[in-house]
Amino acid sequence: MGKKLSQMNLEELWQLFPIFLTEHEECWKDWYHEEETALKGILPSDRIKRISHIGSTAIKAIWAKPIIDILVEVSESYNLQEFKEPLSEAGYIGMAESEKSISFNKGYTENGFAERVYHLHLRMEGDHDELYFRDYLNEYPAIAAEYEALKLRLWKQYEHNRDDYTESKAAFVKDQTRRAKLDFGNRYED
């Protein structure tokens, strides 16, 4: 039997879980909706502001890592720590934590990726720049194509280094998010 995930160092994890991109799959939308329904069944609805499909799998027609990113915004008056236990019981593993956000993964096994993999971003309401980025790229397919080309260029270079892959996309994401906020105004402020 191999090592447990908790016993692996970062390099071992990156080897087991490389970056790989695939053509857009329509099933990703369904996988998101199924997981959203499950989350609504385990998280207290009075404490959740919004649940959203974010990340590249939520952008039409571009290549993406087949990982469904989910943003869960929690109402300001609640503590994120309250959500750790129900998410853990639902199979999510806490990965990173700060005062205003907790990241969880689901679908990572000692043998590699499961069929369905999720990244859940638990944050305080209003921390949702990804919604602007997602909608901007869906609104402007030429910009989405630029993002796809960037990702494809970086893929093999950083196949086993998620941090550098993400960092290499950061300036593009930040610039397009800024443009989206100018274009869309207060679309998500309610």
Rank of each mutant, 00 (worst) to 15 (best):
Y108C: 01
Y158G: 03
I54T: 13
A90C: 05
E34D: 14
P66I: 04
W31H: 11
A58R: 08
D190L: 10
Q157T: 11
E85Q: 15
S98W: 11
F133Q: 09
I48K: 05
E130M: 14
L120A: 01
H119L: 03
F17M: 00
Q7F: 00
R50V: 02
P86L: 03
E36T: 02
M124H: 15
P18C: 06
Y78P: 07
H33E: 15
E97P: 03
V72C: 09
W155P: 07
Y118F: 10
N79K: 08
E97Q: 11
L137S: 01
M1V: 01
F172E: 03
K156F: 12
K49V: 04
E99P: 03
Q81C: 09
I93E: 12
E35H: 05
E159R: 14
S168Y: 00
E110P: 02
L39Q: 02
L80A: 04
E159V: 00
R162N: 10
K29R: 11
K40S: 04
K169N: 05
D164T: 10
L16C: 06
E36D: 04
A171T: 00
K174Q: 14
A142L: 13
I19G: 09
D190C: 10
L154C: 08
A90K: 08
D46H: 13
R179D: 15
E146C: 12
W63I: 03
I143T: 10
G94C: 07
W28A: 05
K4Y: 06
H121C: 08
D183M: 14
L80N: 02
Y140H: 13
K156R: 14
D46E: 14
R134E: 04
E12A: 03
K60R: 15
G112C: 05
A96N: 07
H24M: 05
K100T: 13
L5K: 00
Y118C: 01
L122D: 01
E76Q: 12
K100D: 13
N138C: 13
S88Y: 04
E97C: 01
S98E: 13
A96W: 03
E139I: 02
I62S: 02
I93H: 09
T22N: 14
